[in-house]
């Protein structure tokens, strides 16, 4: 073998190994949680209230709480994020101001989530007097995922060929019509990718909801968005650290349920994404 061929071989081997080093832990985590948790999953576990200090029964209120939170977060963050991305890419004059705004957005993505929690507690819970509630939590989580949604939406909008915009405008369409009928449909799959990433974060975050929504133990379903609620990640934290003599199965069952729930959200978003992709090809 020549030197170059050896270099090729080494590079290929190293790169393959790095790939496995990323994939294997992920598979191990998922596999381990399924292995330890699958035994606990039952109809009762996902549809019943917790009993005996959460050591028995189900985790329904936490599931419902997380569903409400994720939906609320997406409903708040998606229009806001897509709206600001449209403004930034389609309307704003590109220059110092937009560069500064983009920098700020990128920095926001790096702020630790517990800081968002504190911010939500201060602004939504106390100052706006919404109180510890699903609404306050969804608002806080929306702030948290906004940078992701905006950045992904901006990338998606930028990937729309300029020739489509020109064609539409040359046909006497207004700018708004062009955005509605040509730009947004084409950008939708990319925007939904941002939404999917956002869903993942919103469903999994513990610190923000700890400060703004979560109830330690609340064996009933929330009646309105102004109610406190349980949520899966916080519930998982509590039953893993705060409750003595907790059966391990319930912990892993809860983790598995959270994974499953997030997967269902992902699949929903992916189905919508594929629908738009197909429409763009048709």
């Amino acid at each position: 073998m020549t030197k170059k061929q050896i270099q090729e071989k080494i590079a290929f081997t190293v790169l393959t190994m790095t790939m496995f080093m990323v994939v294997i832990p992920t598979l191990l985590i998922i596999g381990y949680i399924i292995y330890k948790g699958i035994g606990t999953i039952s109809w009762e576990f996902i549809t019943a209230m917790p009993r005996k200090g959460m050591r028995e029964g189900g985790i329904l209120p936490a599931i419902v709480g997380t569903i409400y939170l994720v939906m609320g977060t997406i409903i708040l963050a998606l229009p806001l994020g897509v709206g600001s991305a449209i403004y930034l890419t389609e309307y704003a004059k590109q220059g110092k101001v937009t560069r500064l705004i983009r920098l700020a957005i990128m920095n926001l993505a790096g702020v630790p989530s517990v800081v968002y929690g504190l911010f939500g507690l201060g602004l939504f819970v106390y100052f706006l007097n919404i109180g510890t509630s699903i609404l306050a939590g969804a608002l806080t989580l929306a702030c948290l995922i906004l940078p992701v949604v905006i950045t992904a939406s901006e990338e998606a909008l930028k990937s729309v060929p300029q020739s489509y915009r020109e064609a539409s405008l040359a046909l006497g369409a207004t700018k708004l019509q062009t955005i509605q009928k040509v730009v947004l449909p084409f950008a939708m799959p990319g925007i939904l990718t941002g939404a999917i990433l956002g869903i993942g974060r919103a469903a999994g975050e513990t610190a923000p909801i700890l400060l703004t929504v979560a109830a330690f133990f609340l064996p009933r379903l929330p009646k309105s968005i102004f109610d406190q609620a349980m949520a899966l990640p916080y519930h998982l934290y509590i039953i893993s650290t705060q409750v003595p003599n907790m059966p391990q199965g319930i912990q892993y069952g809860t983790a598995l349920t959270l994974l499953g729930l997030v997967s269902i959200f992902f699949m929903l978003a992916t189905v919508i994404r594929i629908k738009f992709k197909m429409a763009n090809r048709a």
Binding site: P161, S163, Y164, E166, A167, S168, A170, L171, G172, A173, T174, Q177, K181, V182, F186, N280, R281, A282
Partner: peptide, 22 residues
């Protein structure tokens, strides 16, 4: 335009695009 730039829509919707906006 220089490069053909039909919208990623049906043939019908491409032609109807302008009149619809109108």
């Amino acid at each position: 335009f220089q490069k053909p730039n039909p919208f990623p829509k049906s043939i019908y919707e491409n032609v109807a695009y302008g009149p619809r906006r109108y």
